[in-house]
Design a protein around this nucleic acid. Structure first.
Lengths: 236, 236
DNA sequence: CGGATTGTTGAGGATACTCAAGTTAGGTGG
DNA sequence: CCACCTAACTTGAGTATCCTCAACAATCCG
């Protein structure tokens, strides 16, 4: 819970345009927080007292419906702002943020939010773009869930994960954090059974390599053809 | 295409906090545009040269997928900002905006965007909130499409429309713009056939009154019970 | 090594889609 | 003002997708 160095802030896009004096002021208000895998940064419904930036690691944001079903809203990658309840005009966090690997986040008191937006136009613009990106992503998911069968939805989600959180390896693109079939199901609106069957079929065709919480995309090109409906799916 | 009066701007939430001098400056850059029903404000893929505020009327934003299927992204209500391609880091509009009733919109050149965000913190904050609201709405739809059967999704959508665009009448809440079964289907990721069957069942139970492009919610309370899954659906 | 979590696979069935045929409402032009 | 024409809607039958339920297998962790 110590104040972070100015250089850490400088590497984050939303602060890149601030001068050193401004950076120091912003850094003085921040606290940094190490997050063990599985630890919860904030829970759905908690009073939104801080907003955050992820410095490194990976978080998963989930929501639980009144009926008790869980969905994965999104993954948070390094450099992302999160916990922006204020921007959503909410006093509580709409979802739960959980670290999936060892992570480091910076936090500011939510009471600083309005001042930061008002005094740092670059921060405001960056925030608008961040939320704008998320909105686009959300619309993509809505469009996919409206018009695509399950196999194509899972395909698009896997490709999106590979793009956002993939690491090039000899055999293909590795999703570089632990991800379960259940996670994929909760991201695409299906069941872990269906995800399992789909990944098995893809594995037999040499498109991916999937194991317990592991996922390697071996043939992104062919997977894209299936996701885009240009090639028939591989389910029996 | 004349410059609008300062008083029109003042009534819009994103400009409410500007003083008269600022308002005049902003108004001088704006053009106003009347929109006949069915007319298109901008099309998907068009160069994003303006951003807009809807003064009165109602617009429908649609997207067409590469496969040619259409979805309704959202309805635009009076006071809403729209065409914010810049905030989405896009040079083209991601969707098509069509007037569903006689409407009036103000427009600004997109080149003014950065200056408006930078010089008017209240405008920036309001924009963040606008996009934040939309993001919440999108997440609600994702959650609904992930976890709810069709009848409940349609229920939630009808209730949302009633809330956003409903007018109290003797018999119930009237959706005050023309809306077809096809529209509802494209908002909920189903087919017009299924929507028709659902509304017929609700009509027989006295929950709604639906006709050609007409929709009246007669019993929102009971409809909410069905939408929330607290009462069984009415489909055979 | 044992328990717990994660994943695989099969069978059966329900939801909602597709295909198909008509019906109604509203606008348009004669 | 009426007849026609189109767009919107209704309804039925058959079926595919994907979910649910169930049982078991593999992997990880302490």
């Amino acid at each position: 819970m110590t104040a972070p160095d100015r250089s850490i802030l400088k590497s984050l896009p939303m602060f890149a345009q601030l001068n050193d004096a401004e950076l120091d002021k912003v850094a003085a208000r921040a606290a940094s927080r190490r997050l063990a895998p599985g630890s919860v940064v904030f829970g759905q419904g908690d009073a939104a007292e801080h907003f955050f930036v992820l410095v490194h690691g990976r978080l998963r944001v989930t929501q639980v419906t009144p009926q008790g079903e869980q969905i994965v809203v999104r993954m948070i990658n390094p450099g992302d702002l999160f916990g922006l309840a204020k921007a959503l005009r909410r006093s509580t966090y709409p979802g739960t943020s959980t670290a999936v690997v060892e992570s480091l986040a910076l936090s500011w008191p939510m009471t600083d939010w309005d001042a930061m937006v008002a005094h740092h136009p670059a921060f405001a613009a960056s925030t608008i773009q961040t939320i704008g990106d998320r909105l686009q992503d959300a619309h993509s998911r809505i469009r996919e869930m409206s018009t695509e069968v399950v196999e194509r939805r899972v395909g698009h989600m896997v490709l999106r994960l590979a793009q956002q959180s993939g690491k090039r390896e000899a055999e293909g693109i590795r999703i570089d954090f632990p991800i379960s079939k259940q996670d994929l199901a909760e991201m695409t609106g299906t069941t872990l059974h269906t995800v399992s069957r789909i990944l098995m079929a893809w594995e037999e065709a040499g498109l991916v390599d999937s194991g317990r919480q592991k996922l390697l995309v071996k043939d992104p090109h062919r997977l894209l053809l299936i996701a885009d409906g240009l090639q028939p799916g591989l389910l029996g």
